Amino acid sequence: MRLIENGKLVEDRFARVPDDEALPEGAPVLIGIERFLRDAEALKDWPAPVGVIWPNNRPIAEIAPYLPQIALIALNFPSFRDGRAYSQARLLRERLGWAGPLRAVGNVLQDQFLLMQRSGFDQIQPVKAADADAFDEAVHRYTVFYQPATDRRPSLLRQRLGRSVSGVAE
């Protein structure tokens, strides 16, 4: 499956493995949280990277003790109207200090790409292949933002304060 990673279309190196199937030896895997929690001790010695699909109806703070052994976190968007994964992404980045790959999966639409990027996602698994082609245009549509975000682009207020304090345009 193809995905968008840091603005580029790439092949997914993680194999998504259902809970009832054996994990492929030596290959990066993406598994559900129930399986991960059940097998967390055994997965500490797994010879390949392990990613976790975290549901949006579970508190993200529960993942904190396992962060050192996780290579990728995928947050689920079950519906385009359900934005809980945005909050989870910001909490992971800002409070839990997650610096690894953060992937948006599920019902991911191109209208949401910019907000996903600003919330801390660096990987997006689009619903339609054509959406991936629209990524660059979608994330560069707006250049000025009122709200601060995880992507560290300065808000309009910060830009104005920077100009008035220093006296020069930044």
Rank of each mutant, 00 (worst) to 15 (best):
M1F: 03
M1K: 07
R2M: 09
I4T: 02
E5H: 14
G7R: 12
G7E: 05
K8G: 06
V10K: 13
E11Q: 12
D12C: 14
R13P: 13
A15G: 13
R16E: 15
R16Q: 14
P18C: 13
P18G: 13
P18H: 10
D20V: 06
L23D: 00
P24S: 04
P24I: 03
P24C: 03
G26W: 03
A27I: 05
P28D: 04
L30R: 06
R35Y: 10
R35T: 11
D39N: 01
A40C: 09
A40P: 07
A40Q: 12
A40R: 14
E41W: 05
A42D: 09
A42K: 15
L43M: 08
K44D: 01
K44C: 02
D45F: 03
W46I: 04
W46N: 13
P49M: 08
V50M: 00
V50D: 01
G51R: 01
I53D: 09
W54C: 01
W54I: 02
P55N: 04
N56S: 14
R58V: 14
R58F: 10
P59E: 08
I60Y: 06
A61N: 12
A61L: 12
A61K: 07
E62H: 04
I63R: 04
A64D: 15
A64W: 07
P65M: 01
Y66K: 06
P68G: 08
P68Y: 07
Q69K: 07
Q69M: 07
I70P: 05
I70C: 05
A71H: 02
A71L: 00
L72V: 06
I73Y: 07
I73A: 09
A74E: 02
A74S: 14
A74W: 02
A74R: 02
S79F: 08
R81Q: 13
D82S: 03
D82P: 00
G83T: 04
G83A: 10
R84P: 06
R84V: 05
A85F: 07
A85V: 04
A85T: 03
Y86R: 13
Y86C: 10
S87C: 03
S87D: 04
Q88S: 14
Q88P: 01
Q88M: 06
A89E: 10
R90F: 00
L91P: 00
L91A: 15
L91T: 15
L92M: 03
R93K: 06
R93Y: 01
R93P: 01
E94S: 08
G97Y: 10
G97C: 10
P101Q: 14
L102S: 00
R103F: 11
A104Y: 07
A104I: 03
V105W: 11
V105G: 07
G106F: 11
G106Y: 13
N107W: 11
L109V: 14
Q110R: 15
Q110H: 13
Q110S: 11
Q110N: 12
Q110D: 13
Q110T: 08
D111L: 11
D111V: 10
D111Y: 10
D111W: 09
F113G: 13
F113R: 15
F113P: 10
L114A: 15
L114R: 15
L114E: 11
L115I: 12
L115K: 09
M116K: 12
Q117S: 09
Q117T: 11
Q117I: 06
R118W: 06
F121N: 09
F121K: 06
D122G: 07
Q123I: 08
